[in-house]
Write a protein that binds this DNA or RNA. Sequence first.
DNA 1: ATCTGTGAATTTCTTCACAGCA
DNA 2: TGCTGTGAAGAAATTCACAGAT
Lengths: 229, 229
Amino acid sequence: MTDRADAGRDVVVRRGGVPEATVGRLPLYHRVVVDLADQGVETVSSEALAATAGVSPAKLRKDLSFLGSYGTRGVGYEVSVLIDQIGAELGISSEWPVVIVGVGHLGHALANYGGFASRGFRLVALFDDAPQLVGTEVAGLTVRPFADLPAVARTDGVLIGVVATPAPAAQQVADALVAAGVNSILNFAPVVLSVPSSVDVRRVDLASELQILAFHQQRRGNDLTQVAR
Amino acid sequence: MTDRADAGRDVVVRRGGVPEATVGRLPLYHRVVVDLADQGVETVSSEALAATAGVSPAKLRKDLSFLGSYGTRGVGYEVSVLIDQIGAELGISSEWPVVIVGVGHLGHALANYGGFASRGFRLVALFDDAPQLVGTEVAGLTVRPFADLPAVARTDGVLIGVVATPAPAAQQVADALVAAGVNSILNFAPVVLSVPSSVDVRRVDLASELQILAFHQQRRGNDLTQVAR
DNA sequence: ATCTGTGAATTTCTTCACAGCA
DNA sequence: TGCTGTGAAGAAATTCACAGAT
């Protein structure tokens, strides 16, 4: 551990290097401070903010410290400053164009989700090949055939795509997205997408989430049985 | 580190203690092995299975080792054995009754999600107070008023609930779920639920997922700009 | 006096690398 | 020989605990 010459130059300055675990919590923090601002709160301590977000105060402070020193010792954080700084870190100042592929119930739900604009996203197109859907209007956008993707992606510079199709269609949709220049994919279909390593995929899977809950539920049950020792 | 008498008794036997990170991947593994079985695959190496699931072989082997030794050295894993063992660990043999509250587009999407039964869940009721929804049939179930929750929860022994309501309603729905004996909640509303510590809540937040993607996207862009030291 | 910011300790997770079994 | 199972090493994340700013 104290081996291997700490020759002095590996001080790891963490150039903008926010740890992944922290990145995963920034959207939550952002949401919470925006809510606080809406309630008229101007200043908040790490303890109060942590309680609202459901994390420990130490974790919250450490997370925020990666963005810089925006708190005041003895006082707390100014809510408006946090909104700006976390927002900047998340790129909320930008307006990322996003497309959704698949306009079933889930696609509908996503399209009608209110928070796009306020979080730095602009929904630019909805795609679905079902004849009864193409041409209909959803969330203020006309549903287009999937074949239109390349044109839209080029015109609007789309880098982020949402896959909300049934499982069997997901892989070919992903392939088309990648071919159209999309390199961040949010996948709601219950399959593991195969994409080039340059493409970032996040899976959201209802069944997995339920199964994780069920696992803990089951463990609790077992604990009751096996408490002795 | 070698301080403090290793008096010999803290050998941590890991009594059924599967690490949390592993638990989070078990549903993925389960899905992948079920898919393999559907394709007629009977045996699979950790390398092939890991590639399909999108994780490293070492991680996969370590994860599976927490469940026991179900592979054969020099050969690989028998797919059917993995299905059984991972399924058992996740409690798929049981049939967890689940309720969904909120039958908007998202609730519809969740209710019509095919995989409930095959993953150990049984959807027992859908709740919504919108007059135009109550009494209608969705996914083979009649939508009921939320006031029916306590009765249903008691009758069916519901321990897991899904919140698919708009944000403003989510907290009071959660309160009612907890009061009705539900202690695992999957929350799709973009709010942090306040619940007793005995209740396990998992959040699924579309905007957060998109923001995490956007963060990485932004970082990639910056890297291109700032490559030269 | 209070509350942040952060090194250091601790815990958890991942990866390595190879002994051991088929 | 080939691939699992797993200690040990390494990396990452979390928590501790307190110095330092207001």
